[in-house]
Computed example of a mutant assay.
Amino acid sequence: MSDIKVLIADDHHLMVDGIKSLLDDVEGLEIVGVANDGEETMVFVSRKPVDVILLDLQMPKMNGFQVAEQIKKKYPKIRILVLTMYDKPGFIRELLESGVDGYVLKNTGKEELVEGIKTVNNGEKFFSKEVSGIFYDSFRKEKDENTFLTTREIEIIKLIAQELTSQEIADKLFLSHFTVDTHRRNIINKLGVKNTAGLIRYAYENGYFDLQN
């Protein structure tokens, strides 16, 4: 059985060196290259065979979201294991929707990282223990919140996150401006945030709007 060909896509040289030192002596893995930005990643996979990409989210020229989307469209057989410091549930949810195969944090250990690479290469999904815990806690929190947030309030949260004004929300939902403002105040009180900025931050962290926008 041939080695798993791994491409590291990350613009932080110290991180790249650390990953290489972790994986260099792992039997069955071969680091075939390093890409320091999104465009380099796309060029590399167009020229050389790659089985698994270790993908950072914040890279110049094309970010990880854009790279993941393009890879899955053009090279669906390549597996993507996101390796990032971002632990917000919204990021995890967004990447899941884009079709990535796994998600681990940069503080993960060697054993878990190797397990992740081998798992996604076999066509299975992989999430590190810490990411799984974050996602579970978010799901439980969202479930609890949704038991006391009405359907209308959740709808309004999503529209506020899209930066619509109260009047624009009112027009869209066929409500009065006063009714929307009342909902807004009730939502702020229920979530325990101080203002609309806090509400938008809540929406951002809990996946109520497209993180690429």
Results as ranks from 00 to 15, higher is better:
F174D: 15
D24A: 14
A197I: 14
T165C: 11
I78D: 08
H177T: 11
Q167H: 12
A9N: 06
V6D: 04
I92D: 06
V131G: 07
K5F: 02
T108V: 15
L81A: 05
I156M: 10
T196S: 08
S138V: 00
E27K: 15
H12I: 07
S166A: 15
F127V: 02
K118L: 05
S46R: 03
I78H: 02
V50N: 02
L81C: 07
D144K: 14
V50R: 00
L29F: 09
M15R: 03
K190P: 13
L164H: 13
D24V: 10
F126A: 05
P76N: 10
L83Q: 03
L159H: 12
S138R: 02
L175T: 01
N186R: 15
L95D: 04
L57E: 06
H183P: 03
S128C: 07
D17L: 11
V100G: 06
N213I: 10
F135K: 05
F126N: 03
I154P: 01
E115I: 01
K172M: 13
M42P: 11
M85W: 03
G38E: 12
N122F: 00
L81D: 07
A35H: 11
A161Q: 12
E30S: 15
N63A: 10
F91S: 11
D56L: 01
I200L: 06
L199F: 01
L191E: 08
P89T: 08
V114Q: 06
D3R: 13
I157T: 11
R184T: 14
I4T: 14
E163I: 00
P89Y: 13
Q58D: 11
I154T: 11
L83H: 10
G28S: 12
E94I: 01
R47L: 13
S21A: 14
L199E: 02
V50L: 03
E94P: 00
Y208I: 04
